[in-house]
């Protein structure tokens, strides 16, 4: 530590700056942003705040929300998984093919297992062989997309068993099953990251791998595990998607990895690892979906959506950096 940062007599940390105190934690700021967006959109479109549209937004959040959980795990360790979109596509094809001959309760677990296996492959290459996550998952992404074309014979597979839609269109207390699943997943994953040894290890690995290792944490296991979770959750997400669309497309999930990374980053996670939360990620997902939904309602060309979401990412990061600057430079 430099002389400037730590006067010897000052062992008590500085009180937080007023600005930061008012704005509170990152999650509170993100919640504020999400609410602001909701207000703006409901003023711009009378359809935005209807019950139907709210369920629409939640429904559209399911796929990206599930994938973003896995991405949060990976990013918290300081890694990145570019293959989730391709794994989504490939496992979708695998599920559709399996459903041609296997019953649903067998085919779905096998699909999830396949996703987990692909994640295990990436995780081992990253953690055991020390390869760069970006490069490893870029490779897996290319392989995954290529295999989905080969397995599908370059076309969509339809003719899925009609019972499949039960996992989406059943409901409990009026809430659709897929939305319930999303909520339950976030609560479980949040509790895992906050209260368990594994969860805290994931944070510690991303924050300081060497220190986590020296303190006796299982750094190897928990460096691999997030990729397994990401792969498995991609397969879970495609299951919900298939149940809605009732057909598997080899191009499905194209660009999904970027949406998931964007949601995690908007949610305040650091790409260097160690910092971020699932609450932030969930808000990031909702913000992205609301922007898309709102622009659709206002009849804006879908080609503008990228510009809007990209701007939000950059503005959110910039605001965060400016706030941090003020508090660390003080």
């Amino acid at each position: 530590m430099s002389d400037a940062a730590a006067p010897a007599q000052d062992d008590a940390p500085r009180p937080p700056r007023r600005l930061t105190a008012i704005l509170g934690s990152l999650e509170i700021r993100m919640l504020g942003l999400a609410l602001l967006l909701a207000v703006v959109l409901s003023l711009s479109s009378p359809f935005f705040l209807t019950e139907r549209n709210i369920f629409n937004i939640l429904d559209q959040s399911v796929v990206i929300g599930i994938v973003a959980v896995g991405m949060t795990f990976v990013i918290l360790t300081g890694g990145i998984d570019l293959s989730v979109g391709a794994v989504f596509g490939l496992t979708g094809i695998l599920l559709a093919l399996m459903l041609q001959s296997l019953p649903i309760p067998v085919a779905i677990p096998l699909t999830v297992l396949a996703g987990a296996a692909i994640g295990l492959f990436s995780g081992v290459l990253v953690a055991v062989f020390g390869l760069a996550p970006f490069v490893v998952t870029l490779g897996v992404m290319a392989i995954g997309r290529s295999l989905s074309f080969i397995f599908s014979g370059q076309r969509s597979i339809s003719g899925l068993p009609p019972d499949l839609d039960a996992i989406v269109y059943s409901s409990f207390l009026g809430i659709p099953a897929n939305v319930l699943f999303l909520v339950a997943l976030y609560i479980l994953a949040w509790a895992y990251l906050t209260y368990t040894k594994g969860g805290r290890t994931i944070y510690a690995i991303g924050s300081n791998f060497e220190a986590a290792r020296a303190a006796g944490l299982s750094t190897m296991f928990y460096s691999i595990m997030p990729y397994v979770v990401a792969g498995a959750l991609s397969a879970v997400a495609v299951t919900f998607s298939l149940a809605q669309v009732m057909s598997a497309d080899p191009m499905a999930g194209n660009g999904l990895e970027l949406d998931a990374i964007a949601a995690v980053v908007i949610g305040g996670a650091s790409l260097y690892g160690g910092r971020g939360s699932l609450i932030g990620t969930l808000l990031g997902v909702l913000i992205m979906v609301m922007i898309r939904n709102g622009l659709n309602l206002m009849g804006v060309s879908p080609f503008w959506q990228g510009t809007a979401i990209g701007s939000i990412i950059i503005i959110a990061l910039l605001a965060e950096r400016l706030i941090n600057w003020r508090s660390t430079r003080a």
């Binding site: 805290r200 924050s207 300081n208 060497e210 220190a211 020296a214 650091s270 160690g274």
Partner: peptide
């Protein structure tokens, strides 16, 4: 480099 985990609190 080897001891402090900067993103965890003092308590953790």
């Amino acid at each position: 480099a080897q001891n402090i985990v900067p993103d965890l609190s003092v308590r953790e």
